[in-house]
């Protein structure tokens, strides 16, 4: 495959699968009897949450590889993935709240998964803020990689702790579907799967787009640094 065709193929695939997923979510899958129309939020919420988890894993792997061989490529992948992860994380929180309000009766409870995802989102924010505030250079990239690794290790630990804590305090959940034992039938599962594929592809195309922007910017910055021309455009 020609390398320059890769982004185009990825974006086209994303578009097609996304349109197909939206068709399935709105037209194909039947409404769940338990929660009604609002249950369709889950077809966007669950894949986005999955995307956020995938992106923290990508950040961690890219960070380890960066510390291992110091290639700027891995650092770019880590930043791009963290940015996409922050967007996915905020959307995950938002869609989760919008689902919880009609179904649980509250926007937010101290439930294990909620606490974990909020902290995951904060870690993404901290990572990106750090990159913005630290003077640019090798040092910045190395420390950012350390933050990425610690964040990825911390996430399952936080989940474990929050689970342990939740068992001590049963969550105060009110509303009709507080039990949440609805029937996850075949069509719901299939729609969720297609939607997850579509959102994973969206995640990869966002990372890819951000990566190429970053790469071009690095090239231009390198040129300016070497020729010591003051740039007003950047």
């Amino acid at each position: 495959m020609n390398r320059s065709h890769f982004p185009f193929l990825l974006n086209t695939l994303t578009t097609i699968s996304m349109v197909f997923a939206i068709w399935m979510v709105f037209l194909w899958v039947p409404t769940e009897t338990n929660q009604g129309a609002v249950q369709r939020i889950l077809y966007i919420h669950v894949p986005i949450a999955w995307g956020a988890m995938v992106s923290i894993c990508i950040v961690a792997v890219a960070s380890i590889l960066y510390l291992h061989n110091r290639s700027a490529k891995w650092d770019r992948i880590a930043v791009s993935s963290a940015e996409a992860g922050a967007i996915f994380g905020s959307m995950m929180l938002f869609s989760g709240m919008m689902w919880a309000r009609p179904v649980w009766g509250v926007f937010w409870t101290g439930e294990a998964k909620l606490v974990t995802t909020l902290i995951l989102f904060l870690l993404f924010v901290a990572y990106l803020m750090f990159r913005n505030y630290f003077p640019e250079g090798i040092q910045q990239k190395k420390i950012a990689a350390v933050i990425g690794i610690i964040g990825a290790i911390d996430t399952p630990v936080i989940y474990f702790a929050a689970n342990l804590w939740e068992r001590a305090h049963p969550p105060l959940v009110t509303g009709p579907a507080s039990d949440g034992d609805s029937l996850l039938s075949g069509s719901i599962e299939l729609t969720l799967f297609v939607s997850a594929v579509a959102f994973s592809l969206l995640l990869f195309s966002l990372i890819n787009l951000r990566y190429s922007v970053h790469k071009s910017e690095d090239a231009v910055n390198l040129f300016y640094r070497n020729s010591s021309i003051e740039s007003n455009t950047l």
């Binding site: 009604g36 609002v38 939020i41 869609s95 689902w99 009609p102």
Partner: peptide, 11 residues
């Protein structure tokens, strides 16, 4: 249901 549709739309 009216309210729930609003939530779906907003999301």
């Amino acid at each position: 249901l009216e309210l729930n549709l609003q939530y779906l739309f907003i999301v």
